[in-house]
Simulated scan of single mutants.
Amino acid sequence: MKKILTASALALLIAGCAAAPTIDSVSATAPLTLSVDGQPVLPKLRPFYSGELMYVPARALLEYYPVELKWDNAHKKLSLTTNSSRSVLSPGSSAMQVQYTQTDGGYKDKLEGPVLLKEGHVYVSAGTVDLLTGAVAKLAASGDTVSITSGDVSTSVRVPKDPLAVAAGSSGKVKLYAARKQGSTYKGFILEVNGRKHSYNWGSPRLVSYPPELHYADVDDDGKPEAIVILSLGTGTGISQEEVHVVKPEVWKELAVPTAEKAASAAVFSTISLDQKDVLLQLEVAGSSPSKYTFRLPDRAGDGGLDHFGTHAGIGAVTYYKVADGKLKAETNVSIGMGESMGTLMLDYKAGNGGMVLGTIRFEPHDTTEQYVEKEQ
């Protein structure tokens, strides 16, 4: 099923609903309350059951999902408009018409139950909430509250009750929250340290398997711990990218940190050449302990020559950050050709120039490529 995408947040009331015919198939149950991301909302608009279907007020969407709601009293229709589409709900109908705002395309979605009008307000089923925004509406274990939890393709305009990450060793005092979710992306974060909070406009994909990491350590050796946030930017075949943010919480200042790719590229020189049927990779790593490697790949020149392998090694297709032993560290790979990884560069950062800079760097061939090292210095 298609889901509505994000738009600018607009809080419009649904006006004039009382003139529309009311559907009287609502079952009598104990009054329910509504919560969104763990917070009570809309106390006067209570969820209810109609038959076996749970219904929630359409206005609940405004509590966590930036969308414009507009009631057309003449035609008895409710429109939900985003920057990418406009959906129309009609009380009594079990279908929703969706029209793209940027093109002439559109489609009709079947709903699990009819849209209802009750006491002048439009209500939609829990399944429709999921269809529209990816959020999940369900009865809480207490039996008296319907809880809406923002889904992985919905948007939240409120700070969730539960943090995305808690720093180990911080006694629960260093936390990271999503400030806002936009589709499958985190749009901003809130960092909490010792009860104080500050917002940052960092963005990253919402990857369930790769949640944000949070650390609390004195990585710049000034005697005060920093909050270190590591965000996954995406993974794929031969690719994995992360970014790191280092914050001094006493002043909420973010320290400049060169990416592992940039820092390593400034310290590594490489050339790729052909030696008859073989491919040679020469790698020089600068730093306090400089080193040189020459890889000979036998009988590989026929794989496409330098058009395939290039003239210099690539750095940074696979990058990871971590905090260990009180230091900010990174690992980034060295590759040739179409992502053929030869080994890993290990980086340690240190304080310098108003932020963090490269401290040490060393190279380790992979177990599978070590056999091609012709000479090592």
Score class of each variant (00 low, 15 high):
K3G: 11
A9E: 15
I14F: 12
I14L: 15
G16R: 11
S27E: 14
S27L: 13
A30N: 12
A30P: 04
L34S: 11
S35A: 12
G38Q: 01
K44Q: 13
L45H: 09
L45Q: 10
S50M: 00
L53P: 00
P57N: 05
P66M: 00
P66V: 00
V67G: 02
L69I: 02
L80C: 00
T81D: 00
R86E: 08
R86N: 04
P91Y: 03
S93E: 02
T101F: 01
Q102Y: 07
G106N: 06
K108D: 05
L111C: 01
G113W: 00
P114N: 05
P114R: 11
L116C: 01
L117K: 08
K118T: 07
G120N: 02
H121A: 13
S125M: 08
A126C: 04
T128Y: 04
V129D: 10
A137F: 08
K138S: 12
V146L: 06
G151D: 09
S156C: 07
V157W: 06
V159S: 05
K161E: 09
K161I: 08
P163M: 11
A165R: 10
S171V: 03
G172V: 01
A179Q: 14
K181E: 12
G183W: 09
S184E: 06
T185E: 14
E192S: 12
S204G: 11
R206Q: 11
S209M: 12
L214M: 04
L214S: 03
H215I: 00
D220R: 02
P225M: 03
E226A: 05
A227I: 00
V229C: 05
L231I: 01
L231R: 09
T235D: 06
T237F: 09
S240R: 10
V244R: 04
V246N: 13
K248I: 13
P249H: 09
E250K: 07
E250Y: 15
A260M: 05
A260F: 07
A260V: 07
K262P: 02
K262S: 12
A264T: 14
F269T: 15
S270P: 01
I272F: 11
L274I: 09
D275A: 15
V279I: 14
Q282F: 13
G287L: 03
S288D: 13
S291C: 07
Y293F: 14
Y293V: 03
F295S: 10
R296E: 15
L297A: 08
A301N: 13
A301L: 14
D303H: 07
G304N: 11
G304H: 05
L306S: 06
D307E: 15
F309G: 12
F309M: 12
G310F: 02
G310S: 06
G310V: 08
G314D: 10
I315L: 05
G316H: 09
G316K: 06
V318H: 01
T319N: 01
Y320W: 00
Y321L: 02
L328V: 00
A330R: 00
E331V: 08
N333C: 01
V334A: 10
T344F: 01
L347K: 06
L347Q: 04
G354F: 04
M356V: 07
L358H: 04
L358I: 04
I361K: 06
R362G: 15
E376Q: 15
Q377M: 09
